[in-house]
């Protein structure tokens, strides 16, 4: 499994993501710059990391979502290549309409940087299969705009189709997101967006390894 990490001006979690993918798969991911319009055919997983792309001007992820590289990512996603967006990466995926809904200002209006509990609502996906259904894991969050919104019809279909993958476990919703949604997947099951940062909980130095399973699942390696 070969992975790639997208680099855009203002993203700042790319190095953490590269470190996580390297440590878990044993292979260093390639990097994709904003102006690239072609992505190599041997890439199985494209990761859009967190940060503040283009200063988050206009709306979080709005400008990044309209850069040439996103067209290339869209084409790969349509071919079934796995795409993972974390934090700003999730915001970019919804702005690019690769995932439904929108991510709005936290209901508290505050930037939240803390650890939350995440429930694995659907363990039957390419990104969560190393977890148990209903398992609750620890995961850090760090964002200002993670308040997931979708209209009632979209929410109903997401829930009904098993497309809600992560929920903040009871009492830990840090941002007011509807139905405690922390992460969703597209209907095809190859594009996942999540607000929490699993790349920051993958080794003892982080204080735990709960986040490893997402990368282990997506990279098809054994979670250690």
């Amino acid at each position: 499994m070969k992975s790639a990490v997208v680099q855009l001006p203002g993203l700042n979690r790319d190095r953490d993501m590269i470190a996580a993918l390297t440590k878990i798969s044993g292979h260093e991911p390639v990097t994709i710059w904003q102006t690239e319009t072609e992505i190599a055919d041997d890439i199985d997983l494209i990761v859009i990391p967190g940060g503040f792309s283009y200063g988050d001007y206009l709306r979080c992820g709005a400008i990044a979502a309209r850069m040439p590289v996103m067209q290339a990512i869209r084409e790969k996603a349509e071919k079934g290549v796995k795409v993972l967006g974390v934090c700003n990466g999730f915001q970019i995926l919804v702005e690019a309409q690769l995932l439904p809904g929108a991510l709005m200002r936290n209901s508290s209006l505050l930037f939240v940087s803390k650890e939350v509990k995440l429930e694995i609502v659907n363990a039957d996906t390419d990104f969560t299969r190393t977890y148990e259904q209903g398992q609750v894991i620890r995961c850090p969050v760090a964002h200002h705009d993670g308040n997931y919104f979708a209209d009632a019809e979209t929410l109903k279909s997401l829930e009904g189709n098993g497309q809600v993958i992560f929920k903040y476990a009871e009492g830990t919703n840090p941002n007011g997101s509807l139905n405690d949604i922390a992460g969703i997947i597209n209907a095809r099951g190859n594009v996942l967006g999540m607000m929490p940062h699993p790349e920051n909980l993958i080794e003892h130095a982080h204080g735990g390894k709960d986040g490893r399973g997402i990368f282990a699942s997506a990279l098809d390696v054994i979670a250690a």
């Binding site: 206009l58 709306r59 709005a62 400008i63 702005e95 809904g101 929108a102 709005m104 919104f149 979708a150």
Partner: peptide, 9 residues
């Protein structure tokens, strides 16, 4: 439609 507004919200 393309940039200034997010017509989802």
């Amino acid at each position: 439609d393309k940039l200034l507004a997010n017509t989802v919200i």
